[in-house]
């Protein structure tokens, strides 16, 4: 059960036991983490699950593919190097403790 830690804008942290194979977005939405909407259900169609991956995990999570890259470019108000759509990050045991920061707004 890889844990995921969601850090809100005010610095508060919420730790959730995820399941390997689930996306970070689905883990957040199912547990009602505020600030991650996931309107399209994980189909790279809405960009409402944008997160900043914590620096310590950015390399392990990796970069977005082209389609996701386009979405981030267009839809996200404050894109950074660590921006990802959390629907495209699949949990693995290797990512246990994955920490992501929630942006101040979703499109």
């Amino acid at each position: 059960m890889p844990k995921v830690i969601f850090v809100a804008l005010d610095g508060s942290r919420r730790t959730i036991d995820g399941a390997a194979g689930d996306s970070v977005m689905a883990t957040a939405v199912r547990n009602g983490v505020p600030g991650i909407v996931g309107e399209c259900g994980g189909n790279r169609s809405c960009a409402t699950c944008h997160v900043y991956v914590d620096d310590g995990f950015a390399a392990r999570v990796g970069p977005p593919d082209d389609l996701e890259d386009d979405m981030l470019d267009l839809a996200v108000s404050d894109r950074r190097d660590t921006s990802r759509l959390s629907c495209q990050i699949k949990l693995t045991d290797d990512l246990d403790g994955l920490t992501v920061h929630i942006p101040d707004e979703q499109p």
Binding site: R44, S45, A47, L67, D70, M71, D73, L74, A75, P107
Partner: peptide, 12 residues
């Protein structure tokens, strides 16, 4: 079709 950038721009 396979062009999310256009889609998003128009949606906005």
């Amino acid at each position: 079709v396979n062009w999310p950038a256009d889609y998003l721009a128009v949606r906005r």
